[in-house]
């Protein structure tokens, strides 16, 4: 059995690492520091941590002001507040002037669980990838979250970092070669490509294992960067395999799946099936129950793979 860890802890641990070597790093939170884990940062660097209270919009603009003065602020809140409550501030105060603000968004996706649909943000990737200048990182486990956070600090410009609430399986294959904008080839295969982002990578890998057993050679491309998209890796997969199943803990509208479909439909048309939340709001429950209920499991990926390959197999 794999180890399970919080992706948000990877974020918080990386912030402490960053702050030790770069005095421009500051952390802002909006009265959810215990939940986002930035409370750990506050203990180590109390003078570089600013709790803005329940003021997400103000926090984003304060971060913009700090960035204008040369600091690298990490503005931290839940995904739904970052993308929607403070969406105007992220657009106008951060993305438009292309300021060096990093947005740490936790509690993204259906696995936020018991808090219900108000907090299970399945629409943030759509909003963030539609913003010019914005880089969108959706890491898949603790370690990849840590590396994504480090990488965000090392590039200039606004970055949206997406993390979950729950513990998620540690996926060893993710731990090498993180680079913004680069896909990771987790598994080779020339029949079908499964494209994953975020914490459903473990379901994607499990589905590939099942498909392999059926004689379907399945490639798994993991994209911790949703924007900019690794077009080269995706178009190679379009040429070398017969279709795609995209997998994301997000609405099928506006997310990774649409990005992949838009790319391949122009350059090398292949069928693209999207596994994700099917344009509905979630409900309260255990994360594991919700993954079943909203059809986000390996078994659903396998069914989608069959559907994609059906015309070719007929």
């Amino acid at each position: 059995m794999p180890e399970w860890k919080h992706t948000r802890q990877g974020y918080a641990d990386a912030l402490i690492e960053l702050a030790r070597r770069d005095d421009r790093i500051l952390v802002l939170d909006s009265d959810v520091a215990k939940a986002t884990k930035t409370c750990d940062f506050e203990v180590v660097f109390p003078d570089r941590f600013f709790n803005c209270g329940v003021q997400e919009g103000n926090m984003m603009c304060v971060a913009a002001g700090l960035a204008l003065e040369g600091y690298i602020p990490f503005a931290t809140t839940f995904a739904t507040f970052a993308a929607f409550r403070a969406g105007d501030m992220v657009r106008n105060a951060i993305a438009y002037p292309k300021l060096n603000v990093k947005i740490g968004a936790t509690h993204a996706g259906i696995t936020t669980g018991g808090d219900g649909a108000s907090h299970q943000c399945n629409e943030d990737i759509a909003v963030m990838r539609a913003l010019p200048n914005m880089t969108v990182l959706v890491p898949g486990d603790y370690e990849e979250s840590r590396q994504a956070t480090l990488a965000a600090a090392s590039m200039y410009g606004p970055v949206y970092l997406r993390f979950g609430r729950d513990v998620y399986p540690v996926v060893e294959e993710l731990h090498d070669g993180f680079a913004i904008g680069k896909a990771k080839l987790l598994r080779r295969g020339d029949d079908l490509t499964i494209v994953t982002t975020g914490i459903l990578v473990s379901e994607g890998l499990a589905a590939a294992e099942t498909l392999e057993g059926e004689g379907i050679a399945t490639r798994v491309l993991h994209l911790p960067t949703v924007k900019p998209l690794d077009e080269e890796a995706l178009l190679r997969a379009a040429r070398e395999t017969r279709g795609f199943v995209t997998v994301e803990e997000h609405n099928i509208l506006g997310g990774l799946g649409e990005a992949v479909a838009a790319l391949v439909s122009l350059h090398h048309p292949r069928p693209v099936a999207r596994v994700g939340v099917r344009d509905v709001f979630g409900e309260s429950g255990q994360a594991s129950e919700l993954l079943d209920l909203y059809h986000l499991r390996a078994a659903h990926i396998v069914s989608s793979a069959h559907a994609v390959l059906a015309p070719a197999l007929r």
């Binding site: 919009g57 603009c61 002001g65 003065e69 501030m89 106008n92």
Partner: peptide, 24 residues
């Protein structure tokens, strides 16, 4: 110094800039 247009944001951004000045 600061891009503006959507209303109500300037005092917040100014807050960040003023805080930066204090830190330095």
């Amino acid at each position: 110094d600061v891009s503006t247009g959507t209303l109500g944001l300037g005092i917040s951004t100014g807050g960040g800039m003023a805080l930066a000045a204090k830190l330095r």
